[in-house]
Structure formats: structure tokens, C-alpha cells
Amino acid sequence: MVSATSLTSGFGIWDPILWVLAIIIGLVIAWILWSSGFSTYKKGTEQARPYLSGNAEPPKGEVHIRAGNLYWGFTEGLKGYYQRIVPLHTGIMTDYLLWMFWVAGILLIIVMVV
């Protein structure tokens, strides 16, 4: 289906309007499901408290998972890669220039030979 708003790449078609319609329909369905739930819980009682296997709820500040702890597994899994890549970012400015000269040199060889 090609409409006035669709983007063609020569291989396929992408119509954002259809996508937006799908999102709106999805949101409406979600809203219908949500609004058919009970809203009659009692505030300030056990019903409104989070249930953590019967343990006491920790203070709010400790619940939040800080950024430094996110994707620990990812970096741990790719340790071999990160151990090679991160030390290259030495922060020394002459190293930055050295990389630039390396690239220029390699490019020169490629361009002259090929």
C-alpha cells in the first residue's frame, strides 16, 4: 500500500502514518484493559504497599539501581574486547595526534598501492 506519506527505498516501503495508527490502536486497547480493572483499593493500607516476599521495604534511595550497576553482565561478557579497547583511550593528547598520523600513513599506502 503506497500512500502520499510513505517513504520508498527502492526495495521497500515505510509508511509512518500506518505505524502511528497502530500505536494509537494499541494504546486504546491498553487503556480499555486498564480501565476495566478495579480501582477500589484502600489507600494507606497493606493493599497499596509493595510486596517484597514479606521483607520490609528498604528506604527509597536504596531501591534505585544506579547507572554504574546497569549492563554489568554485558561488559563482563565482552571483557576481552573492552580490555583491549578501553586502554586505547589514554587521554594523552599526543596519542590522539599519533593516531591521526597513523591513519594518514595507512591511507597513503592504500591509495598509492591500489
Partner: peptide, 10 residues
């Protein structure tokens, strides 16, 4: 997640 989500921090 780490900036916007979670309870307001002290």
C-alpha cells in the same frame, strides 16, 4: 532508567 525512573532520590 538511571536518570528518570525510580523514586525521587534524597
Amino acid at each position: 532508567h538511571s536518570v528518570f525512573m525510580g523514586p525521587p532520590l534524597p
